[in-house]
């Protein structure tokens, strides 16, 4: 029982971590909290449903479709809502926040109109396959989710530390002006960041669909808030913090549901937000002081 919950928690936690990575990348480079990230995640999940259930595509193709669609959404987000605000005189630092809130309610309600308010079932061909190890049951889906998450995290870490584009991204996150003086095409890097972050959201969307067998237009909001909670826990802009924070939230939610009151499951994230902001605003893994941003 305990072990099974541990597996469930880690599965959920690794999805959370991927969502949080998308937040953290954008915040690290742009200093902006992308309130639309949760809804981009939701769109990714719907692309998964549509391609697999309606069009009957194989899962790997659904992943590609989802990455492409959310990547394009990311590009549009950057071009239409973020770039016009950058470097404009007299624009409050709250403007990008409000603008991405606009994108989030637009996407949520568009999906609401297109797909309806209810849950859509998500069928993957191996949903029922499971392995029994001793007394515990592990579903193949869980292993797939975990493997994909780990691969993504490792891939991102390597990409950030080893490749030229990844290094440029880190330089831009460190200091935009210095990076542009050093010859980094910051405009390109920013666009790339938002696209990658959104595509990761899209992947997480399919993974959630697989894990819970259903998607709905409202899932973006709660996932978005959880992602926020995680990056606040892990420290804004901190990649390792996002991964650890995701696992912590996933595990604590699973154990609350198993051994406590499931009604308050969604509240954990928000209570976490409030307490961390009050007690340790720089996050558990963060060293930078939150003030001044």
């Amino acid at each position: 029982m305990l072990l099974e919950q541990l597996v469930n928690g880690i599965t959920l936690g690794s999805i959370y971590a991927i969502v949080a990575l998308g937040f953290t990348l954008v915040f690290g480079v742009l200093g902006i909290i992308n309130m639309a990230h949760g809804e981009i995640f939701m769109v990714g999940a719907f692309v998964g449903v549509m391609t697999t259930s309606v069009l009957g595509w194989p899962l790997w193709l659904a992943f590609i479709a989802s990455i492409v669609v959310t990547g394009i959404l990311g590009y549009l987000l950057e071009r239409i809502t973020l770039r016009p605000l950058r470097g404009k005189k007299g624009v409050s630092h709250l403007a990008p926040l409000i603008s991405t809130i606009g994108v989030s309610i637009l996407l949520e309600n568009l999906s609401h109109h297109i797909f309806g308010a209810g849950n859509q079932p998500f069928r993957s061909s191996f949903a029922e396959i499971s392995i029994e190890i001793g007394s515990i049951t592990i579903y193949l889906v869980q292993i797939v989710i975990f493997a994909i998450s780990i691969l993504l995290m490792i891939g991102l870490t390597i990409w950030l530390s080893k490749t030229k584009a990844g290094k440029a991204l880190r330089a831009t996150a460190e200091n935009l002006e210095t990076a542009s003086i050093l010859g980094v095409d910051t405009k390109k890097i920013i666009t790339l960041t938002v696209i990658i972050a959104s595509a990761m959201g899209g992947i997480a969307g399919i993974l959630v669909g697989m894990a819970f067998n259903s998607v709905s237009p409202q899932m973006g909001l709660s996932m978005g808030l959880k992602g926020l909670a995680i990056i606040i826990l892990g420290g804004m802009g901190n990649v390792k913090g996002a991964m650890a924070g995701g696992l912590i939230l996933g595990l604590s939610e699973t154990f609350l549901v198993a051994f406590g009151d499931s009604g308050y499951r969604d509240a954990i994230a928000f209570i976490m937000i409030i307490f961390i902001l009050l007690l340790r605003p720089q996050g558990i893994f963060g060293s930078k002081i939150a003030e001044g941003r």
Binding site: A229, A269, I274, L277, E291
Partner: peptide, 12 residues
């Protein structure tokens, strides 16, 4: 906290 963090805390 600065503005953006306050917004999130109040949202939470």
């Amino acid at each position: 906290l600065s503005g953006v963090y306050l917004a999130i805390a109040t949202l939470g």
